[in-house]
Amino acid sequence: MTTRSKSAGGALALQILNHVALGLVALLFLFPFFWMVSNALRSNAEVLAIPVRILPSVFQWDNFAVTWTQLPFGRFFLNSLVVSGSVTVITVFVSCLSGYAFARLKFPGRDALLMAYLGTLMVPAIMLIIPLFLIVNSLGMVNTFQGVILPVAFGTFGSFLLRQFFLSIPMELEEAARIDGASRLRILVSIIVPLSMPAIGLLSLFTFIGQWNNFLWPLIVMTGADNATLPVGLTQFQTQQGTAWNYIMAGATLSMLPGIVLAIILQKLIYNSIALNAGMGGR
């Protein structure tokens, strides 16, 4: 009896130790975030001061105000929001329509077209950068929002993702709606889309974050300083005002904020979607 309770107590201690150890690893992992914020809040002289200061001597909260208004990170933030938001809206709209056609409409060549769509998923984005830029250039859309938005808003992944989800909605619901007199568009809008909000939310989230974090494409298309998205804006200051590390860190913090907030708020949705991948990998 005594050995048993002893081993139970030992197991508990081991569990606690286990948590503490991983907690330390996690803290270490979070250090770059801490370092970024800590440097965003100090004077530039303190950034590379020797000896290294872990915390600022004075917390300069108005660094963020300066970054937002004077260095136009406010403008960059807005640009990023417009680009990511527009791409997300277009992607969801286009994917709903095409996903529905693939899931529920009969037309000649459907399966072949679907396979072609799947095939395009194999092509890495960086391969298309050059011809895409040439197309945007010939359309006269270099340094415009449509130029940076349109070429990345028609990915085939959304069509495929929503098709898969739409297929899981009972066919009889749709047939009932047809007998009730609904057109295909009405069925999509009134029945399918409201019932597919988890999938549409997921597509929106990953499209938005993907574009928010996208760098190479806006770097190439947005040649004007004012039109830069946040990541592009950050690198502009890296080269032009390489010494203003505190403001750059403040800008980096701003650029990371939406992703971090979404990752925390929507952790269940994200986990479930990745778990789905894990499950599919197993099939």
Binding site: P32, I209, N213, L230, L234, T235, M249, S255, M256, G259
Partner: peptide, 10 residues
């Protein structure tokens, strides 16, 4: 979920 560019700058 954060921009790779911002990560690299930090």
């Amino acid at each position: 979920f954060t921009p790779g560019i911002a990560v690299a700058i930090v």
